[in-house]
């Protein structure tokens, strides 16, 4: 999926990923051998019904969970060989994660929530604040910086979560059903932000079971029972060119 005539290192590359829950006869194969490569600047939607393994795949891609077997390279680094603190570093620097249920920290202002990844990255408070405000501005919530999550609507909370995910300039933005809990208006807002980010060259992988959402992506992968059954690229959109 690389740009023609150009060698690019894929942002993520998984080979034969298997995730099994339980043991013996009751074992459930959430992922039964998934191989996938995503190039920089791509916009991928992973679809599948409930139980197809898409969330499991997402959690492994986000380094929140570990696969039973298979390899996962993120930005050329074999993640399965990293230890706990190195994984924390990877989650902090290379991945931005947007959850279905927002997962903002309660009773903490939007600004402080967005600053959090930068704080863990060890960035100075003044710089941190500036970057967090810029990220909030990007999602159109600069004027809500001092609001706590419970003072924001679902769509606003998810936009704060998107700001938090992109504030550390990650190589990969993962979104696990980012619009699953939102009304259609907020869904539009969030998706247009994601589209904008992708247009700026950000690599995005999102999970959804809604075709309208998947239509925003350039490439749609369908999972059934832990296996990829289709991998379709929209014809009208050429692979994104990204400076190496």
């Amino acid at each position: 999926m690389t740009a023609p005539g150009r060698e690019q290192r894929p942002v993520l590359e998984v080979v034969d990923l298997v995730k099994t829950y339980g043991e013996g006869e009751t074992a459930v194969h959430a992922l039964a051998g998934v191989s996938l490569t995503v190039a920089p600047g791509d916009y991928v939607a992973i679809m599948g019904s409930s139980g197809s393994g898409k969330s499991t795949l997402m959690n492994i891609l986000g380094c929140l969970d570990v696969p039973t077997s298979g390899t996962y390279r993120l930005d050329g680094v074999d993640v399965s060989e990293l230890n706990e603190s190195q994984l924390a570093l990877v989650r902090n620097r290379r991945i931005g994660f947007v959850f279905q249920s927002f997962n903002l920290i309660a009773r903490t202002s939007a600004l402080a929530n967005v600053e959090l990844p930068l704080a863990y990255a060890g960035i100075k408070p003044a710089v941190r604040r500036e970057r967090a405000l810029a990220a909030l501005d990007m999602v159109g919530l600069a004027n809500r910086a001092d609001h706590d999550p419970n003072q924001l609507s679902g769509g606003q909370q998810q936009r704060v979560a998107v700001a938090r995910a992109l504030v550390s300039q990650p190589a990969l933005l993962l979104a696990d059903e980012p619009t699953g809990n939102l009304d259609s208006r907020s869904t539009k807002d969030v998706l247009s932000i994601l589209d904008g980010l992708n247009a700026q060259g950000r690599t995005i992988v999102l999970i959804t079971h809604e075709d309208e959402v998947a239509a925003h992506a350039h490439r749609t992968i369908r999972l059934v029972d832990g296996l990829i059954v289709s991998d379709v690229r929209r014809r009208d959109i050429a692979p994104v060119e990204v400076p190496a």
Binding site: E84, L89, N92, F97, L104, I105
Partner: peptide
Amino acid sequence: TREIGIRKALGAPRRV
């Protein structure tokens, strides 16, 4: 615990 999970997902080292 959930808050700790969020912090970890954002890359908080265990020590912090």
